[in-house]
Design a protein around this nucleic acid. Structure first.
Lengths: 141, 141
DNA sequence: GTAGAACCTGGAGTGCGCTCCAGGTCAAGC
DNA sequence: GCTTGACCTGGAGCGCACTCCAGGTTCTAC
């Protein structure tokens, strides 16, 4: 991911933390927290020590967000990030992690759908109940 | 749910907290916590003050578990439980809550599936990368 | 009737993922 | 050059959903 194709990088957008916060929906604090936690490698700085995020940082953040949204813990993301930082030799490990997470996710989606179906039944039940009450099928108020 | 059909209740299984813990997968502490929090109405007791759960308690717990597994917060479950305790007049409110939760859930499932698809792409990407490395498509080690 | 397991209570503690704060530095507009 | 708002750091605090603990009571099996 680092070597390979020497793409001629464009002007490197260089976003402030506020801009990244807006684009990702993460707060300034969370962005700093993720960096401190090692989820993002140390972001570039201005001479005055203010963060400037480039396109790669943003792409990585978006990937992290997907992991988070699919329920990966910070600890596991730290693990993944560490592997990534080690370079191309860890590709197999990272792939294994992603596959496991993917399988996990599939299971959770299945479970959610089962539960959703059960919820639908419950909703039907309540609808019938309500209808009975409204039409007075069941005797006294 | 309380009036209506006067079913001749069977011997009322009357389970101990340990038995309910095993059946539901909740810990003793969590069961007591849920009761203290008002998620379950006060469970019946022996003369010696030990809990005895009946079939209705178990069914309600299982319903709560479904709500929990689909991401409902304790606070919302408390709200639902309070409505339930108020009796049949709150059926419409409960139905509304369930419908909202159901819609929410549908959204979350959709989002998860989108993210799952993105994860699949990432996995494909890593597989190609790994294959390149193994077949030495990309030059020096 | 007694040992030991299971149960009770109120309240403190935990882990996670942020979120907030104090006290300071930096940068853009006037 | 000064104000004002964005940014920096380390560290404390928070809300959630439990989980654990101490100290006591009850139940079961012998």
């Amino acid at each position: 991911m680092t070597s390979g194709h020497p793409l001629p990088r464009d002007p490197e957008p260089s976003l402030t933390i506020a801009q990244v916060a807006e684009r990702t929906g993460l707060s300034h604090d969370t962005l700093r927290y993720y960096e401190k936690a090692g989820l993002i490698e140390r972001v570039g700085r201005t001479t005055g020590n203010q963060r400037r995020y480039d396109t790669a940082d943003l792409a990585w953040l978006e990937f992290l967000l997907r992991l988070r949204e699919t329920g990966m813990s910070i600890a596991d993301m730290q693990c993944f990030a560490r592997l990534r930082a080690e370079g191309d030799t860890t590709v197999a490990d990272r792939l294994a992690m992603l596959r496991e997470h993917r399988a996990d996710l599939a299971g959770r989606i299945r479970a959610l759908r089962r539960n959703a179906a059960a919820l639908d039944d419950k909703i039907d039940h309540y609808e019938r109940l309500l209808h009975e009450r409204q039409t007075g099928t069941d005797g006294p108020a």
